[in-house]
Design a protein around this nucleic acid. Sequence first.
DNA 1: TAGATTGTTAATCGATTAACAATC
DNA 2: TAGATTGTTAATCGATTAACAATC
Lengths: 208, 208
Amino acid sequence: MEKKISLEVIKRLPRYYRYLTELLESGITRISSKELSERMGATASQIRQDLNCFGGFGQQGYGYSVEVLHDAIGEILGLNNHYKTIIVGAGNLGKALAHYKGFEKRGFKLCAIFDIDQSKIGTVIDDLTIQNLDCLEQVVQKERPTIAILTVPKSAADTIAQRLVNCGVKGLLNFCYVDIDVPAGVTVENVHLSDSIMRLAYKISNNL
Amino acid sequence: MEKKISLEVIKRLPRYYRYLTELLESGITRISSKELSERMGATASQIRQDLNCFGGFGQQGYGYSVEVLHDAIGEILGLNNHYKTIIVGAGNLGKALAHYKGFEKRGFKLCAIFDIDQSKIGTVIDDLTIQNLDCLEQVVQKERPTIAILTVPKSAADTIAQRLVNCGVKGLLNFCYVDIDVPAGVTVENVHLSDSIMRLAYKISNNL
DNA sequence: TAGATTGTTAATCGATTAACAATC
DNA sequence: TAGATTGTTAATCGATTAACAATC
């Protein structure tokens, strides 16, 4: 039986991946947990503990190969699966995310965008035509996306989430300001912008 | 000396605030920690512990007044300060956030938007004219915003953050995919969209 | 008053840090 | 080999949960 990976560790993985990508791009080929800890503002101990949840990627007396570690974490994160992605809700935020290059750069391929607004349907965003939400099931059946990005009004969130789950979507990146209930086997990752700015306000008010 | 509030508690505050707003809107006037815990999927014990970091808002045998608690948490979060906000970077994301009503609803008033692109400068978004980034200091001097939302290219993030801090901005809501260094007394809250989708990918890959 | 539910202390659990033997 | 740095165990620290006396 595999040992359970704590959520805290999982939350840190993308950040490790980012730093390793930067190291790779700057031509650095090896790094010690100490050096990485200084760059990231963490303890070397934590880095070694975290990495050893997944395997011994380092070498005593040497450190870690940046490339090996980068690729390993990419693999662990599942980036190699190149999950197909759709956006539901082509409002301002949905459109902005459609243009966003960061997702594609990390292997997430956008394959469809949906909206209910007739005036938007048929419009092209970044090579993709906005499709009628009525065709959601039909298109999902064909394209088989794994991830759906939800940028619909709060009131529509639950129903649409349900529909997405029913036709086999495995993960929701939820920008709606509600907590969505999904069955086991489906994952929701929330991006609650209002929460972020309120946390900021708290820290400012209490000068932290 | 006040007891230190843990970051974990702070992170949960906006979510409490959201649930209380919903309760308030649905006309519910009182709630027990038990009832709230069931709605939110937390333990009653945690809720009571969290709230008691800030004061005894409840009443034995009765529970909490939704309105009192709602207003108290709003106050704790600093929403009553009505922090003025600016957006730096009027790309797709910056524009989308300018249209976003959620910030204003919680007391954050957008008072200026900046970009360097000549073709954007002078354009109007949601009642605000996009201004030249060259005028940043001048406008900030006059408007005195507390918060800046950063939606500029990664390469510009550090320099602009520096300029914002220099002219007295106290908090950054950072959408750039870099970690920004700021002096003590200034706060950064990151919204790293790529981190979110990678965490989602991890959970899907490992069916969590 | 009796019942309910808080505020708070104590117990448990988990995560982070420190230490060091293993080893490249 | 000697020096460096990992992988891993043990110690510490902090957060969550349980329990219950206080009290509305």
